[in-house]
């Protein structure tokens, strides 16, 4: 394993293969009715194919930022421009909680996005079986969410996001509530999906280790009102798919770098 390739490169230093931007967010600001200013002057771009983490302490407006990016929440100031005019139709969203419909089976939950997008039942059923197999829930299609463990619920939630074959995958601290073993496993699987689907991921997290493990680029946010205070880039590291990576010195160095940046942001 070539450890040198894992070294992070800090901002200002041009990355080697700069991919085309997918979206440009400019000067995003949001103040809620309660008077709390969640975001102020947030600008960044999302590049095609990257794994972008947004790292910040709880309450720094990360969730609002992600919802604004998805078009689910209107910002007070600023604008988002998508390279193709609109957000990709094939967008997946994974929430903080599994957010499964308790009255529907796992299969029906996973099929929901296709159903809402108007695809026919046969296609949806086929695709659901496929994706459930990929996340290891093929035997649970007819089970109700309450019968699943927390990790399995999150897998179902992930499957629901992946069923549309997303070009853009938005994730809001999806694994924060899971035990470490499940989280590690899901992180690895997420990377595999990211590589296989060749999609763009925007991943909100408060975990330095998750950001270090997963992302090709990390935006560090200040506490409320949230601003992007630092951008840390890593070279795309295929070595991350190595099971040893989590214990490597390169990983520790990355985590340290992010941790320091987060410290500076406070």
């Amino acid at each position: 394993m070539n450890a040198g390739r894992l070294k992070g490169s800090t901002k200002r230093k041009p990355a080697k293969a700069e991919s085309a931007p997918l979206a440009e967010l400019r000067d995003i600001g949001k103040t809620f009715e309660s008077g709390i200013t969640a975001l102020r002057g947030v600008s960044f771009s999302v590049r095609r194919g990257e794994f972008l983490s947004i790292l910040g302490a709880s309450g720094c407006g990360k969730t609002s930022l992600l919802r604004i990016a998805a078009g689910l929440l209107a910002s007070d100031t600023g604008s988002i421009s998508w390279k193709e005019g609109t957000r990709p139709r094939e967008t997946g969203f994974v929430f903080q909680e599994p957010a499964l419909m308790p009255w529907a089976t796992v299969g029906a939950n996973v099929r929901l996005p296709l159903r809402l997008l108007g695809s026919d039942d046969r296609t949806a059923a086929l695709r659901a079986r496929e994706i459930l197999t990929q996340v290891g829930l093929d035997k649970f299609a007819d089970t109700y969410p309450h019968e699943l463990s927390g990790g399995m619920k999150m897998r179902a939630s992930l499957a629901r996001a992946l069923i549309v074959k997303p070009k853009l995958l938005l994730m809001d601290e999806p694994f924060a509530a899971l035990d470490e073993i499940s989280r590690f496993k899901l992180n690895d699987e997420l990377l595999a999906f990211w590589r296989e689907l060749n999609c763009t991921v925007v991943f909100v997290t408060h975990s330095v280790f998750e950001a270090a493990y997963l992302s090709t680029r990390t935006l560090v946010m200040s506490p409320r009102p949230g601003r992007v205070v630092e951008e840390i880039r890593f070279l795309p590291a295929t070595e991350r798919f190595d099971p040893q990576y989590r214990t490597s010195a390169a990983f520790a160095a990355r985590a340290r770098k992010l941790s320091d940046a987060l410290e500076r942001a406070q």
């Binding site: 919802r67 078009g71 969203f93 419909m101 996005p113 809402l116």
Partner: peptide, 23 residues
């Protein structure tokens, strides 16, 4: 979050009522 999911996929009022609010 489910309401967000429904708006993410542009489900109209009717679908949201039928598949989300009524259940």
């Amino acid at each position: 979050q489910l309401r967000d999911l429904f708006s993410l996929y542009d489900a109209g009022w009717w679908k949201a009522l039928l598949y989300l609010r009524l259940p």
